[in-house]
Design a protein around this nucleic acid. Structure first.
Length: 509
RNA sequence: CGCGGGGUGGAGCAGUCCGGUAGCUCGCAAGGCUCAUAACCUUGAGGUCGGUGGUUCAAAUCCACCCCCCGCAACCA
């Protein structure tokens, strides 16, 4: 039995769940379902990152205590994922006591080994960005983000000797080609590591910021948010017990968007090295959804809210678009036009209509009772079956490389083939000849098999749809049928259900 | 000399790592079918795969140089 640990980033509680959060989470959910269905025990972690100046500020604006504010937004994330049917195994909050304890324990450990030191640092600090700027980074002496002049601050802080681990990290990335995927992000990190890596300031004085995890060896300071948040990947497993931790660490796949590449590719591995823990296995980096905001309706504003999408179009339609229209790693555009076109063409027409027509014929011609197959199959029957068998192999190959769009493309190739098969064999014509009824029964049997295989294939991507197809075929809800050979699934006298519209066409006008 | 991404039929994209008849969706034209969600099937029109040069029997794909667009600013995946 192999194991797999899958994480999303901890979402910062200064915004409500939007398209980007949803994408990462849907990807994780799909992988979780995919690997689980293949017998790989998978632990899926998500949660919220709740400390730092920005949260303290946002809370103040709302006239709330930071914790109360964080509670509210964190709950919004959790309930959103619940409503979307996301199959996470644990939801962590950086304000959870067990997490704080782990952060403090690791800080103490690294401090004891001498990789954390107390030093003085002076520089231009922008309160908006919560960071120091070098003079080179400033534009006209101003912070490029906030157009404000940063203040010169001289203060003492704790520093992590990150630079000490630069060579070790470089070696690791070079000897593990699939450590950071896709490759261009790996290239980017390697390029970054050509320059000397400085040490990382990991504390904030309490005089400036209260809202954080206290540094265990100096109560005048709290922990820098990234040093706090990254550790969640370990603290969540520890919380589940020593055995869970031993089982799943370091078999971790961290899913992130490109904006947080540096903390995950550089801070986190060096932190693990200093803490004496093995490095995670993969960092999988995806791109951004580019909003075509000009075209969006005013009522929707500029944000795609997952719950609204689910209510308007169904979660599976939304999932399908996200997985099908973005090449993992690259940016993609989001527009309602593209969404509607995609859903109508692929879900309503190709898939939904296929299910309808097959079940309609089964009902009309044989009262929904599945007819037996004869010993010898026609060439087109074999071709149809082989096509689906090939798709199974294709999916496996594509999923290994995070090519979700190709996996779906190959499934839809099989659906095209199936629609072609209907026209080629024309059961509705054969039915006019009583002598051909037996053949019609066989053709429909093959078609039902193709629907069954489709439902198996779709399970990780479109879980609701997959289970609806199973229930239309009157198959047990939770029993995987992927291992049952084509033609051996339906027992004599098996009765399927009447057709149903899985995806209504979205009418525009 | 910043870093990265992209430039493929009218539109939007895949294919580029692992060279070998240029593919998908939408749109358009003609035909077929009637089981089905005005769906489905077939055929057609439409591309010098940004440019130039190179490697090769063969390049969208590899190499070199050049041109153009986008992000690295916003809450943020």
């Amino acid at each position: 039995m192999s194991h797999f640990f899958l994480t999303t980033p901890l979402f910062y509680v200064n915004a409500e769940p939007h398209l980007g959060h949803t994408y990462t989470t849907v990807i994780a959910d799909t992988l979780k379902r995919y690997y689980s269905s293949r017998g790989v025990e998978t632990f899926f972690l998500t949660g919220t990152d709740e400390h730092g100046d920005k949260i303290a500020e946002a809370a103040k604006e709302h006239g709330m205590e930071p914790k109360a504010y964080a509670d509210r937004i964190s709950e919004l994330f959790r309930s959103t994922w619940d409503a979307c049917g996301i199959s996470y195994d644990h939801f962590i909050r950086t304000t959870d006591p067990y997490h704080q304890k782990t952060v403090q324990r690791l800080l103490q450990k690294i401090y004891d080994t001498g990789d954390i030191y107390f030093g003085e640092y002076g520089g231009f600090y922008c309160f908006g960005c919560e960071r120091f700027y070098t003079e080179k980074e400033l534009v006209d002496g101003k912070c490029p983000d906030h157009q404000k002049k940063p203040e010169y601050i001289q203060e003492k802080n704790y520093f992590f000797r990150m630079g000490k681990y630069q060579q070790q990290l470089l070696d690791h990335i070079q000897s593990h080609p699939d450590f950071i995927r896709p490759e261009h992000y790996r290239t980017e990190v390697l390029a970054f590591l050509r320059e000397p890596l400085g040490d990382l300031c990991i504390s904030r004085p309490r005089t400036r910021l209260e809202w954080g995890i206290p540094i265990p060896f100096d109560t005048d300071y709290v922990t820098y948010v990234w040093f706090d948040a990254l550790i969640n990947y370990v603290s969540a497993l520890e919380y589940k017990g020593e055995r869970v931790f031993q089982t799943y660490w370091p078999k971790a796949n961290h899913l992130i968007a490109k904006d947080i590449l540096k903390p995950h590719a550089i801070y986190w591995p060096t932190m693990l090295m200093a803490a004496g823990l093995p490095c995670y296995e993969h960092l999988d980096v995806h791109g951004y959804w580019i909003m075509e905001s000009g075209k969006m309706s005013k009522s929707l504003g500029n944000v795609v809210r997952p719950l609204e999408m689910k209510e308007r179009f169904g979660m599976d339609a939304f999932r399908y678009f996200l997985l099908r229209d973005m090449v993992f790693g690259q940016d993609a555009a989001f527009s309602f036009d593209a969404f509607i076109t995609r859903v109508n063409a692929d879900l309503a027409n190709n898939l939904g209509n296929l299910v309808s027509r097959v079940l309609a014929m089964q009902k009309k011609y044989f009262s929904s009772k599945v007819q037996p197959l004869s010993g010898s199959w026609a060439a087109e029957d074999l071709k149809l079956r082989d096509c689906f068998l090939q798709v199974g192999r294709d999916i496996q190959r594509h999923m290994g490389g995070l090519y979700f769009h190709r996996a779906l493309e190959s499934i839809w190739g099989a659906l095209d083939r199936t629609n072609q098969y209907v026209v080629q064999t024309s059961p509705f014509v054969l039915m006019k000849d009583p002598e051909k009824h037996k053949r019609v029964g066989e053709i429909l049997h093959h078609l039902l098999e193709s629907l069954r295989m489709t439902s198996d294939f779709l399970t990780p991507f479109l879980p609701e749809t997959a289970s609806e197809i199973r229930s239309l075929l009157a198959l047990p809800e939770n029993k995987a049928t992927a291992d049952i050979p084509w033609g051996s699934l339906f027992q004599p006298d098996h009765q399927v259900n009447p057709p149903k519209v899985l995806f209504p066409r979205i009418e525009t006008s």
